Amino acid sequence: MDKKQPHPLFKLATELGPLMVFFIANAKFHLFVATAAFMVAVVVAMIASYAVTRHVPMMAIVTAVVVLVFGTLTLVLHDETFIKMKPTIVYLLFAGVLGGGLLFGRSFIAVMFDQMFNLTPRGWRMLTMRWAIWFAAMAVLNEIIWRTQSTDFWVAFKAFGMAPLTMLFAVTQMPLIKRYHLEPATLEQSEAEAGDVSKG
């Protein structure tokens, strides 16, 4: 499938747009209205992403599925616990997939991030391990926030805390990516592209 490269602002809008909708709807109405709006916004963002790029990132698909499932439970049971636990479930899924892959000598971080770079097997292994730990830590942080703080605080943290923290963490990984970066057209690159971390 031929993937078109979207404008960075479009990519940012599809990733952060649903969070902004969630925050604004919660501020104007309440969490249940915000949950319904969030579900619609996530679906719209996926459709827009596919319409423009003919591709939807794996992370976006997984996140959308969990949002729809837990959002539906929140609305049907009228229990805000489910939507608050959604980030925890998503982060634990990502951490589990990455950590489980490493146990079998595979790195799935390339699939998650649409493989924006080429690394040696050792580089993939280290990057995957760091992201697995990060996702697990974010799951714990989300649990602490929603269980100890108000709903409005949690919504603000979800909208303005989680994404910036994750972006900041991604930036701190650039030295590792540069250190283990591979030049194009090498046999080792082919192994890295396949996510093989059992070598190197």
Results as ranks from 00 to 15, higher is better:
1 M>D: 11
5 Q>C: 09
6 P>Y: 01
7 H>N: 15
8 P>L: 11
9 L>G: 03
10 F>T: 03
10 F>K: 08
10 F>I: 10
11 K>Q: 07
16 L>Q: 07
16 L>T: 13
18 P>H: 07
18 P>D: 03
20 M>V: 13
22 F>S: 05
23 F>L: 11
24 I>V: 14
24 I>P: 02
25 A>E: 03
25 A>M: 12
27 A>Q: 11
27 A>F: 13
29 F>D: 13
31 L>Q: 08
37 A>R: 01
39 M>T: 08
40 V>H: 00
41 A>R: 07
44 V>E: 08
46 M>E: 13
48 A>M: 12
48 A>N: 01
54 R>D: 08
55 H>Q: 04
56 V>R: 02
57 P>L: 10
59 M>S: 07
60 A>L: 04
60 A>S: 14
62 V>Y: 00
63 T>W: 00
63 T>Y: 06
64 A>I: 01
65 V>E: 10
65 V>S: 11
67 V>K: 01
70 F>A: 00
71 G>Q: 06
71 G>E: 12
72 T>A: 15
73 L>W: 05
74 T>Y: 00
75 L>W: 05
75 L>D: 04
75 L>T: 11
76 V>N: 08
77 L>W: 08
78 H>N: 11
79 D>T: 09
79 D>A: 13
81 T>Y: 14
82 F>I: 01
83 I>T: 10
83 I>H: 07
83 I>E: 09
86 K>T: 09
87 P>R: 05
88 T>M: 10
89 I>H: 04
89 I>S: 02
92 L>C: 08
94 F>H: 07
100 G>W: 02
101 G>M: 03
104 F>R: 15
105 G>M: 03
111 V>A: 11
112 M>H: 09
113 F>R: 08
114 D>V: 07
119 L>A: 00
120 T>M: 02
121 P>T: 05
121 P>S: 11
124 W>I: 00
124 W>T: 02
125 R>L: 08
126 M>E: 15
126 M>C: 04
126 M>I: 14
127 L>E: 05
128 T>V: 06
129 M>Q: 11
133 I>F: 14
134 W>D: 06
134 W>A: 04
135 F>V: 02
138 M>T: 05
139 A>G: 13
141 L>I: 09
142 N>L: 01
144 I>Q: 01
144 I>K: 12
146 W>H: 14
153 F>D: 10
155 V>D: 07
159 A>T: 09
160 F>E: 05
161 G>I: 06
163 A>S: 14
164 P>C: 15
165 L>K: 03
165 L>D: 04
165 L>Q: 04
166 T>C: 02
167 M>G: 12
171 V>G: 00
171 V>Y: 15
172 T>C: 05
172 T>V: 03
173 Q>E: 15
178 K>T: 00
180 Y>N: 12
180 Y>K: 02
182 L>K: 10
182 L>Y: 11
183 E>G: 07
185 A>Y: 00
191 E>W: 00
192 A>E: 00
194 A>I: 03
198 S>L: 06
200 G>Q: 09
